[in-house]
């Protein structure tokens, strides 16, 4: 009996040690993952800031140079994938995930504003699509809308699609919602300053954006 008690205890200590080590390693790896996203976002923020500064300082900067320097969309899309994966694994309520998501959303808004300025200066006519979704139970068609937009972005990489979590607590996002006068119905799209509510198929989107066939420049961020 005594030998058994000793064995129970040793087994418990070993199992607890392994379990604790796994928890610690998992926490460390998750922190490293968050840190990696943070680092990429910081790089993007620096790039945007740098471009903005160049834009402000050197009005004579050629449009070609700006276009060459403004290829942030791929990086934003990469961050989008990473944030989405981390959100899935750590949970949407995780404080760090929320922080990264807010930062990512801000970066998208910054990129949107900058690209609008660049378009104005350089006489470009890119198509901006703002997509508002929800991960909560109040948007049955958001998943479907995400697939349609991703497919559209694959077909027309020149589209600039920005996706925003409607319920994210971020003042800049609230302002964006107010400016665009959204009524809360989801999914919602802003195309050419005009709001569209409910699911829009690829065919409907193509009909809404007649200039889609003539797009040549710019690229897009991945839709969620």
């Amino acid at each position: 009996m005594q030998q058994n008690n000793k064995r129970y205890l040793i087994a418990f200590v070993i199992a607890a040690a392994i379990f604790g080590t796994a928890l610690a390693i998992s926490t460390t790896l998750n922190n490293a993952r968050l840190e990696q996203i943070r680092a990429i976002q910081e790089n993007i923020a620096t790039d945007i800031l740098s471009l903005e500064t160049q834009f402000e300082l050197l009005s004579e900067l050629s449009c070609r140079d700006i276009r060459e320097n403004s290829v942030l969309s791929e990086e934003l899309a990469d961050v989008s994938r990473r944030v989405a994966y981390t959100e899935e694994k750590l949970g949407a309520e995780n404080a760090e995930v929320l922080r990264l998501k807010r930062q990512y959303t801000l970066l998208q808004i910054k990129d949107l504003l900058l690209m609008k300025k660049v378009s104005q200066k350089c006489g470009l006519e890119p198509v901006f699509i703002l997509y508002f979704y929800s991960n909560e139970q109040d948007c049955a068609d958001c998943e479907r809308q995400g697939y349609a937009l991703t497919a559209l972005a694959e077909e027309y990489p020149q589209l600039r699609i920005y996706s925003f979590d409607y319920h994210l607590d971020l003042p800049a996002l609230t302002t964006l919602l107010t400016i665009n006068d959204l009524n809360g119905e989801l999914p919602a799209l802003i195309i050419g300053e005009k709001p569209y509510y409910g699911f829009k198929s690829m065919e409907e989107l193509t009909a809404i954006i007649p200039e889609i066939e003539t797009l040549t420049a710019a690229s897009s961020t991945e839709a969620r």
């Binding site: 796994a22 998992s26 694994k89």
Partner: peptide, 10 residues
């Protein structure tokens, strides 16, 4: 980055 490293997976 996309390897599952949740504690349950480990």
């Amino acid at each position: 980055f996309f390897i599952n490293t949740t504690s349950a997976a480990l």
